[in-house]
Simulated scan of single mutants.
Amino acid sequence: MKASETVLEIDLKALEHNYRYLASKVNSQVKKLAVIKAFAYGSDSVALAKRLEKLEVDYFAVAYTKEGVALRDGGVTKPILVLHPQSAHFQEIIDRCLTPSIYSDFVLTHFIASAEANNQQHYPIHLKLNTGLNRLGFDPDEAPLIIEKLQQTSSIKVDGIFSHLAASEDPEEKEFTTSQINTFKKVSEDIIAGIGYQPLKHLCNTSGILNYPEAHFDMVRTGIGLYGYGNSDEIDKQLIPVGTLKTIISQIHHIKEGESVGYNRKFKAEKDTKTATLPLGHADGINRIYGKQKTNVSINGHLAPIIGNVCMDMIMIDISGINCKEGDEVILFGKEKSAEEFAHNAGTISYELITSVSQRVKRKIIE
């Protein structure tokens, strides 16, 4: 359907295709966790979670407590792992039956206190281990401390142990990734021996699923792959972008040689030029890095570069030689024009582009 305004179309059939493709890469006994943080990578977290529940996904993950609360309020019932919980939100986590990632002694101590204050027994947590990403997580030498504290309380129970691969998409970092896998195996087994029961172990992200089958363990996590991007051209061909960002031409201008376009006159016409103004800008997630002819959009099957500085609410494009008119549809990224291509041309990545789409952009669910 042609756009009549700026809209992000969200294709649930594409989501289903991507989920089934990634699920086909793991043993049927391995559980699947869908990462739907940041509004499901800039789309619609509740709509996607509900479709994934129908596909029998086992677990969800979000970054922050607020995101998990939004899923619960939207009717999502499967377990939800909060990857970066803050102690100020522990009561909300317990009230909404969310599962916190426990990544430090501070977080462990304070969550035990919250669980005990709420008379909890065996409240589920996941332990986050730092195996080399050096972002969040217990260091390997803290395993005895973890075990000691867990043995002293019955208020919480370890439902999962996990870590995060730093470079699973990079073949040049295979040695480092293998060392992460081995560290995770050793430390997680030490903790399991100390607590006396077997929680879920999970390590692989999307690229880990595809490149390190030996590290699938009990559960795998997929984020970017669900949305149609696989960190390589080969895998991208197997996936379908879920989101398509569309807009329309608001106005067409005929710029004479020597005239300029936009703020600070960052585009100056070297010849007579036809331009179009589009109704979206950096307040909608099309940041200033995409201006000055770094990347382009698609109109009626033709590419048109973004010119000059991106404005807060508008961008201008060069449509010289393109047969188009005011009101015509413009595609920034989607199935026919990859977000990875759009982003790469400007020196960034698809993750940043798709998660930046502002909440003022209308979302349209395509069944």
Rank of each mutant, 00 (worst) to 15 (best):
L200T: 12
V76P: 01
S4R: 12
D318G: 05
F342S: 03
S28Q: 14
L145M: 13
I192F: 10
K362M: 12
S45Y: 03
S24E: 01
M316N: 15
E352M: 11
Q198L: 10
E270L: 09
F162V: 03
V7D: 06
I80R: 04
I112E: 09
N205M: 06
S163V: 05
V30Q: 03
C204H: 02
D159R: 12
E270F: 01
N130F: 04
K78A: 13
K2H: 11
A61D: 06
I80N: 05
E214I: 10
V357P: 04
N118G: 09
I36S: 01
E257L: 00
A63E: 09
F176D: 10
K32M: 15
H122N: 15
P199W: 08
G160F: 05
I319P: 02
G334V: 04
F111W: 09
C97M: 11
K201I: 06
D95H: 15
V330M: 03
Q151A: 12
T222F: 09
T109Q: 15
V187K: 05
L22G: 00
A276K: 03
F39G: 13
E340T: 12
G301M: 07
S207I: 01
V187A: 03
I240C: 05
Y212H: 07
F39V: 10
A269L: 00
H344T: 15
L278W: 00
V310A: 02
I317M: 07
R96S: 15
G262E: 08
V76I: 14
Q86D: 14
E341K: 15
G194V: 04
V46T: 11
N309P: 04
E336I: 12
G243H: 04
G308S: 07
K201A: 08
K54G: 07
N130V: 05
